[in-house]
């Protein structure tokens, strides 16, 4: 069932990136190290997008998550006094997070093992779609009156609201 080829090797490698990065994020005491592990993890996700033939999303993943959000997180860490040299663990609710994470894992694993999504499900064997969507298709769909033009504009509005809210919160000293 599992064949060893370049794609499966890449899949395993990216999985290791994601899992190793995620493990690093939750185990390290140093917040900057945590941010770097997060970058590794996000990079693995970008690799998954490439394997799924979604190069646009892969580029977006690197551009937005590694280039912007990781930087934002590091800035936020540096803004907070004495957060970087923190040595004591302050995650007292780790058991709750562990519980939620474990339940989610069981739920997803059940979805794959039980005949819902996996190889034994009703969808197995059927071609997902014979049309490969390109970035051009995405662009046309985004501004098509019958398709996604409303979400497109709402996204812009949402981002505007996000920026205004962030500025109001960050500058409440005035």
């Amino acid at each position: 069932m599992i064949t060893i080829n370049a794609q499966s090797i890449a899949f395993i490698l990216f999985s290791l990136f994601i899992l190793g990065g995620g493990l690093g994020v939750v185990t390290t005491r140093n917040l900057i190290h945590g941010a770097l592990y997060l970058i590794l993890s996000l990079f693995g996700v970008a690799g998954f997008f490439v394997l799924l033939s979604a190069p646009f999303l892969a580029a977006v993943q690197v551009l937005v998550y590694i280039g912007a959000i990781a930087i934002l997180i590091i800035f936020a860490v540096m803004l907070t006094r004495s957060m970087t040299s923190l040595t004591e663990a302050f995650n007292r609710q780790w058991w709750l997070a562990g519980l939620v994470g474990g339940l989610l894992f069981i739920f997803l694993a059940a979805g794959i093992i039980l005949p819902v999504w996996g190889a034994s499900s009703a969808y197995a064997g059927q071609p997902v779609s014979d049309v490969v969507a390109t970035t051009t298709d995405l662009g046309i769909a985004l501004v098509d009156g019958n398709q996604y033009v409303l979400p497109f504009e709402v996204a812009s509005l949402l981002l505007t609201a996000a920026m205004i809210g962030a500025i109001v919160i960050a500058r409440d000293d005035e």
Binding site: F56, V60, A68, F75, L79, T135, L159, T160, M163, A166
Partner: peptide
Amino acid sequence: YIYALVFLVFDVEMVFLFP
């Protein structure tokens, strides 16, 4: 932090504008 935030908003908007 504010510069980075404004940049992030623009960055996400670019994601929609490129297609």
